[in-house]
Design a protein around this nucleic acid. Structure first.
Length: 314
DNA sequence: CTCCAGTTTT
DNA sequence: AAAACGGGAG
């Protein structure tokens, strides 16, 4: 019973779309260093965590340096937290860096330094949610599993339903659609990055990232434009804002937290702490500053020293 | 000002 | 279900 979405009659283009997308993928996919079987499963996981809310183009140099320095989970597990936070640099959401190291510690100690190969075990790892667990199952292990992220939601909704996907969490209907159109894998294709479900997930996501973008999709350059319900219907609601207003950044705690962390990352060689005086120069509102220092401490991103100086954790 | 290969906490 | 969490690019 697949009644979660009432659109089964609508979905009949899938084979043709899959063929066109696969061709486009092989001709136009970005040559990211963790693609095409060049990275270990752990390397794929690292790339996915770094890409949570951060554009791929910004991730590439960080990933290269990171994997050279900490090639596997055990290496990262043994690193100093301060080094992990510093290496994370300006990727944003630095708690991801800490969770990635926690993840590495679990993989190293509970799984013998080899990434577990089931969705449920991956999902249980720190910092790994539904998207990343699915992505690793598909991209690293070649398993047939529906991957649902913001790009895939947008592309599938446009191509097959002709409407913009709504903001917020993925709906049951969107998940059902993703499962419904996921290609079967033929038995003969054994190389994991050649499996049709894997190419499907990667190419749909890639299309959403570089062609079928949120605000101004490049329909002229789209390999499935002739089969896209959204384009056929005149792209109804394109550019219409469906997400709730995002929190502004200027003046928020996130900005202040970023300033404190940035000061700690950029300390001269040999210095490990920022003193209270310097902290107070970073932000005029000392109430907010103290709130942010406290929250950074709670997150394990800094340690508070005597005299209210701060440092990165060991 | 919006958007971005999301996850966790409330 | 909503808020918190960075920072850069278009």
């Amino acid at each position: 019973m697949n009644d979660t979405n009432g659109n089964n009659a609508e979905i009949e283009n899938v084979e043709a779309v899959a063929v066109a997308l696969a061709e486009w993928w092989h001709a136009s996919a970005r040559d990211l260093p963790w693609r095409f079987g060049r990275a270990t499963p752990w390397g794929v996981l690292v790339s996915e965590v770094m890409s949570q809310q951060t554009q791929m183009s910004r991730v590439v140099p960080y990933w290269n340096d990171w994997m050279e320095r900490w090639p596997d989970a055990a290496a990262l597990a043994g690193a100093a937290k301060s080094d992990v936070i510093t290496a994370w640099g300006r990727l944003g959401y630095p708690r991801r860096a800490l969770r990635l190291q926690e993840c590495a510690r679990v993989v190293a100690s509970d799984y013998g330094n080899e990434l577990p190969q089931t969705y449920d075990e991956l999902l249980a790892l720190p910092g790994i949610g539904d998207y990343t667990a699915s992505a690793v199952m598909s991209f690293a292990f070649g398993e047939r599993i529906a991957v649902v992220d913001t790009n895939i939601r947008r592309v599938l909704s446009r191509v097959f339903l002709g409407v913009e996907s709504l903001g917020g969490a993925a709906s049951p209907a969107e998940r059902a659609l993703a499962k419904q159109v996921l290609p079967q894998d033929s038995v003969s294709k054994c190389r994991r990055f050649d499996r049709s479900s894997v190419v499907w997930n990667q190419s749909v996501m890639e299309l959403g990232a570089i062609v079928c973008t949120a605000k101004s999709p490049l329909c002229e350059a789209c390999p499935v434009s002739s089969r896209c319900v959204f384009l056929r219907d005149g792209r109804p609601g394109l550019g219409e804002r469906r997400t709730r207003p995002r929190q502004r950044f200027q003046g928020t705690d996130r900005q202040v937290r970023g300033l404190v962390l940035n000061a700690l990352r950029n300390l001269p060689e040999g210095e490990i702490a920022v003193d209270r005086k310097s902290l107070e120069r970073l932000w005029d509102d000392h109430i907010q500053l103290d709130r942010c220092i406290a929250s950074l401490d709670e997150d394990g991103l800094i340690e508070i020293l005597p005299h209210a100086d701060v440092r990165l954790p060991v």
